[in-house]
Design a protein around this nucleic acid. Structure first.
Lengths: 227, 227
DNA sequence: TGATGTGAACCCATTCACAGCC
DNA sequence: GGCTGTGAATGGGTTCACATCA
């Protein structure tokens, strides 16, 4: 109501906003107050025009001839990403990875809190990891509903990932971050993002192999950087 | 020489090959021997035409009217990605994340092995994690060169990530997988991929927020799935 | 007949280049 | 003068649709 739903932002741009946000927060920590699209592009390793276009989707928050006010821009990006609230997330799987995630303190400052963790293993149920009590997976729906959780993280072995996904969907979760190295299938309205260590490494190995074969591979762009 | 450098594969296609590979390996485990682009697309949650085009970059390894021979296709993808050899990787940072990575057994079967781990903290140096002895970061160049490591993983806190990147570059590493939540800058010839939990969650929160505002957000595509 | 392989069309994303404003 | 904001141009990736072949 107060902030009417502005035009939809292209997916690719949305994916970069968190990166800009992080950089802005770092700049604030260093005491900087203004930043130009050129500087920001430099720090993010992308093209300056891209920065300006991305930011323009939020509205016209820059000042011509000057740049962007960091504090104001930070606020706008956070608002756009929905980070003016703290999102409760639930973690499925309390093995190595699940524990690492629960212990990872970095989430609090970035708009999230771990509302709970679940596992199938009875020996894990009841333990407390990173301040989070692990409950049985059958409690998932309870937890999700009582704490209004809409984001779930799958940190199970590959063999149980689909099961975990099904449970999350049944619990009414709308977005899933999948750390298990398998493709999970979910109803179309559920959004999934996947993080897979080996998969990332395999992409890198392709280019390393190209390099070793003497092909200059590509001039490199991707997550661009400066020396 | 034996396999002459075929035309370069588009970046987006390269990024999907590991996913196909994993699915093919799963199918093999289930005893399947043939697969069509339709089936594969279904399992990967992408369009069938995309599967065919992606695979066509490798060469014409399918049989019209039949599909793809899984074993043969698996071999071809592995070869293309350079996975017919095992790539040694070095992990910088032996904290929570670094330990989780070293302990993660899944790498061996997917074309990688942990050649070593390093840290700055003297109390960590000398310990053995996941079968890997942690050494001091000053040994990085030694390790990298003696074991021909070309891929490095940054698992340090954000504050030390740039430092770690510099050391890796100095050690002659060509590709970096960065788990630290900062953008690192490296010379142009070094390839970087970034994995950031909070960043992924922040992307999801954008769409959850859209949803909660009643905007049907997007019809969803991304890592597509079937119900 | 049935599924691949691929030109062509389409669509989204990136980049250019400059008008507009401070 | 300097930097934003954005139409227009470009480029890459996706999808269509069909010729091709087992």
């Amino acid at each position: 109501m107060s902030d009417f739903p502005r035009r939809r932002i292209p997916e690719a741009a949305v994916a970069r906003l968190p990166m800009y946000l992080r950089i802005l927060i770092e700049l604030t920590a260093e005491g900087t107050q203004q930043v130009s699209s050129d500087q920001l592009a430099q720090l993010a390793g992308v093209n300056a025009a891209k920065v300006r276009k991305d930011l323009s989707y939020l509205g016209s928050y820059g000042t011509r001839g000057v740049g962007y006010d960091i504090e104001y821009l930070t606020y706008q990006i956070q608002r756009e990403l929905g980070l003016n609230q703290s999102w409760p997330v639930v973690i499925v799987g309390a093995g190595n990875l699940g524990q690492a995630l629960a212990n990872y303190g970095g989430l609090g400052g970035r708009g999230f809190n771990v509302a709970g963790g679940v596992d199938v293993d009875p020996s894990k149920v009841g333990s407390v990891i990173g301040g989070v009590r692990i409950r049985h997976i059958d409690d998932l729906t309870n937890i999700a509903q009582s704490k209004s959780v809409s984001i779930g993280v799958i940190a199970t072995p590959a063999t149980h990932a689909q099961e975990a996904a099904d449970q999350l969907v049944r619990a009414g979760i709308g977005s899933i971050l999948n750390f298990a190295p398998v493709v999970i299938s979910v109803p179309r309205h559920v959004r999934v993002r996947k993080v897979d260590l080996a998969l990332e490494l395999q992409i890198l190995s392709y280019y390393e192999q190209m390099r070793s074969k003497g092909l200059r591979a590509v001039p490199d762009v991707a997550d661009g950087q400066t020396a």
